[in-house]
Amino acid sequence: MTVRVLNATGTPGRAATAAKELRAAGYTVTGTDNAPTPVKETTVTYPSGLKEQAKALIARLRTPATPRWDPQATPGAVTLTVGSGYPGLRGGLPGTTALRIRLRHGRPWQPSVTSTVL
């Protein structure tokens, strides 16, 4: 998925930090910039055709967000606008499943595959 990152915190470097985290999680970052005005809430906007990608990105955020269609959004990219309350991404890689091992009382360890976002 391709993501553009905007800093709406008023604190220099927040978009660059979020972009680094996104790249480490397997996303392609097209660029970073400052948003026109500071905001507290982190938002995800998308151009036509990228609603599902926006939802997938939101699923990785550690903060609630609603995908918003923006006719002026960067074509081909979802835009993450980092607000002052942005806590980062959840663990795990996009689209992967996590292997969990559980201890059951009186039984040996048994692996259990779940499709949980960490």
Rank of each mutant, 00 (worst) to 15 (best):
S48M: 07
N7Q: 12
G92N: 13
S112A: 15
P111H: 11
Q53H: 07
T66R: 08
V29S: 12
P47V: 00
R60M: 14
V113P: 01
I101V: 15
T63K: 04
G26V: 10
K55A: 02
G13E: 09
P111F: 05
G95N: 12
P64V: 06
A56T: 02
P38M: 07
I58K: 01
N34K: 04
P94E: 10
L61R: 02
S112V: 15
W109K: 02
D70C: 00
P47D: 04
T28V: 08
D33E: 13
K55Q: 13
T96R: 04
G83T: 08
T2K: 10
L61Y: 05
G49R: 00
A35P: 00
L22S: 14
L118G: 12
K51S: 01
S84W: 06
P75M: 01
V113Y: 13
P94Q: 03
A8V: 01
E21V: 03
G83D: 03
V29N: 12
P67K: 00
P67H: 07
N34P: 00
A65Q: 02
V117T: 07
P12L: 14
Y86V: 06
A18G: 14
V39F: 08
K40E: 14
T74V: 08
R60C: 08
V82P: 02
G88S: 08
G91P: 05
A35S: 03
V3K: 03
P38V: 10
L61W: 10
V3L: 04
G83A: 07
A15N: 14
R102W: 08
T116P: 07
N34W: 02
L80T: 02
L57V: 06
V39Q: 08
T2M: 03
S115F: 07
P64R: 09
D33K: 11
N34E: 13
G83I: 05
S112D: 15
R62W: 05
A59G: 14
E41N: 10
L93V: 03
P47C: 13
R14C: 11
Q110L: 15
Y86F: 11
R90F: 04
T81M: 09
P71I: 00
P47F: 02
T37D: 05
G85D: 14
L99I: 09
